[in-house]
C-alpha cells in the first residue's frame, strides 16, 4: 500500500470540485461589468446636441474646474424614468448633470423630458454607442462622476436613487 495517497487523489479532487460549486452557488448573482476607465482621464469625445436649444457635450467641458455628473440614458429605457426626480433634486442642490442619450431620436427625447422633467445642463447624442463604449459602459442608465480636471472618479451602475445622493455629493465635493 505504498501509493495509498494516489487512490485518494480522485476523492480529494472531487471534494475540490464540489467546494468550487458551493462557492459558485453562494456567490451573489452579479452580472455587472465594471468600467476600467474609472480613475483614468475622460476619453476625447464630442457629442453633438441631441435637442435644439440645449448644448451637446464634449471632453473639454469636464476640464473647467467644476466636477460634473455624466448620465448615460435613453428615452426608451424604462428604469431611466425612475432616476429623473433624483437627478432633478441633485440639480436643485447645485450639481451639474449632463446627459448622453443613447440610440435616441429628438422627438422621443423631447416627449421624455416633457413628461419627466429635464435635469440636464447639456445633452449629447450617441447614436451608435460610441461614447458609451469609450467609457466602458455596458448599459443604461449609468452615471459617471467626473472631477473638474477631466478625470473619471466613479461609475454608478443602474438607477440613481435617493439613497445614493449623499455618496454622489461626497464624491463631487471632494473633487472641488
Amino acid at each position: 500500500m505504498k501509493r495509498k495517497w494516489l487512490l485518494w487523489l480522485p476523492f480529494a479532487l472531487g471534494l475540490v470540485l464540489l467546494g468550487l460549486f458551493y462557492v459558485g452557488l453562494k456567490k451573489p448573482e452579479d452580472h455587472i461589468i465594471v468600467s476600467r476607465m474609472v480613475g483614468k482621464p475622460l476619453p476625447l469625445f464630442t457629442a453633438p446636441a441631441a435637442l435644439p436649444g440645449q448644448p451637446g457635450a464634449a471632453t473639454a467641458d469636464y476640464r473647467m474646474g467644476k466636477p460634473r455628473l455624466l448620465n448615460i440614458f435613453a428615452s426608451w429605457c424604462v428604469p431611466c424614468v425612475a432616476e429623473v426626480p433624483v437627478l432633478l433634486r441633485l440639480k436643485a442642490m447645485g450639481v451639474e448633470v449632463d446627459g448622453i442619450a443613447v440610440h435616441d431620436t429628438t422627438e422621443a427625447l423631447q416627449s421624455f423630458l416633457a413628461r419627466n422633467g429635464n435635469p440636464y445642463t447639456r445633452i449629447g447624442r450617441d447614436d451608435q454607442s460610441r461614447i458609451q463604449l469609450m467609457l466602458g459602459s455596458s448599459g443604461v442608465p449609468e452615471t459617471f462622476v467626473i472631477d473638474g480636471r477631466g478625470m473619471i472618479v466613479h461609475q454608478h451602475i443602474g438607477v440613481v436613487s435617493e439613497a445614493d445622493i449623499p455618496k454622489l455629493l461626497g464624491l463631487l465635493g471632494q473633487q472641488k
Partner: peptide, 9 residues
C-alpha cells in the same frame, strides 16, 4: 476593448 471592460470582455 479590454482597456474599457477588462479581461472579461
Amino acid at each position: 476593448l479590454v482597456s474599457k471592460y477588462g479581461d472579461w470582455v
